[in-house]
Simulated scan of single mutants.
Amino acid sequence: MSAIQLQSSQKRVLEALVSLSKADERAVSGATIAAEVDRNPGTIRNQMQSLKALSLVEGIPGPKGGYKPTVDAYEVLDAERVDDPADVPVTRNGDPLPGLTVEEIDLTTVHDPERCRAEVVLAGSVRGFDAGDEVAVGPTPSTALRLTGVVDAVLRAEGTLTVDITEIATGAPAASAAAAGTGADESDCDDGVAEAVESV
């Protein structure tokens, strides 16, 4: 397949479709995509027509219809398509979020004495999240990694949460990153991450 150059708006819509379709096998409605990228449904219909012409999107007719990404869409976005992905559960403020799973966890600032953070990329919509929400992620299938924290930022276009970690663990007991209510403690954060990484 030759390299397809997408406009930024096309790429954003296609990334949203891929993310939403990973969370749910059904076709994704134009209205759902529009809400995810904060655009008008008419704009999404126009974008989908151009993406269909590029063979990146398949239109599904009918009352439960919508759009599905093609194999080429995953290639253009350099995204991995997993036929039977393992679910990595997510909770927000103690409530499980069915249909939402973790795609990637990036431990970004494990040696910062002020903060222990992670970027959590979700398959599905992050629209329901706000800064200050308490989240719990995991366990992951291979290492049983679990992390708990508070959402610091929601990057809607990327489907990513920036989380200040308060607790991180693998199959072993959790290591606390909270230090007497004053933010993350470097040694606790480092120890918890070291335990988690060593078991990977």
Rank of each mutant, 00 (worst) to 15 (best):
V150E: 08
A3G: 09
E119R: 15
S8T: 06
E195M: 13
R26D: 08
L54W: 08
L56S: 00
D87A: 12
K52V: 01
N40I: 10
D188G: 15
A144T: 06
L161K: 00
D188I: 11
S2T: 07
H111I: 01
A178V: 09
S176G: 07
G183C: 11
V137N: 03
V150G: 02
I4E: 03
E75Q: 02
T32P: 06
P85C: 07
I60E: 00
I105K: 09
D24P: 02
P89V: 02
M48F: 09
E15A: 01
L145C: 05
K64F: 15
K22E: 04
V102P: 02
I165M: 12
D152Y: 07
G59R: 15
R156N: 04
S21M: 06
K22R: 15
R115P: 05
T70S: 02
G149Q: 09
R156S: 07
V88Y: 10
V13I: 08
S142R: 15
V37G: 03
A177F: 11
T170P: 04
P89L: 13
A27P: 05
L161P: 00
V200W: 14
S125E: 04
V137I: 15
D95F: 15
A136E: 14
V82D: 04
G42W: 10
V135I: 10
S187V: 03
L122Y: 15
N46K: 14
G183E: 05
A178T: 10
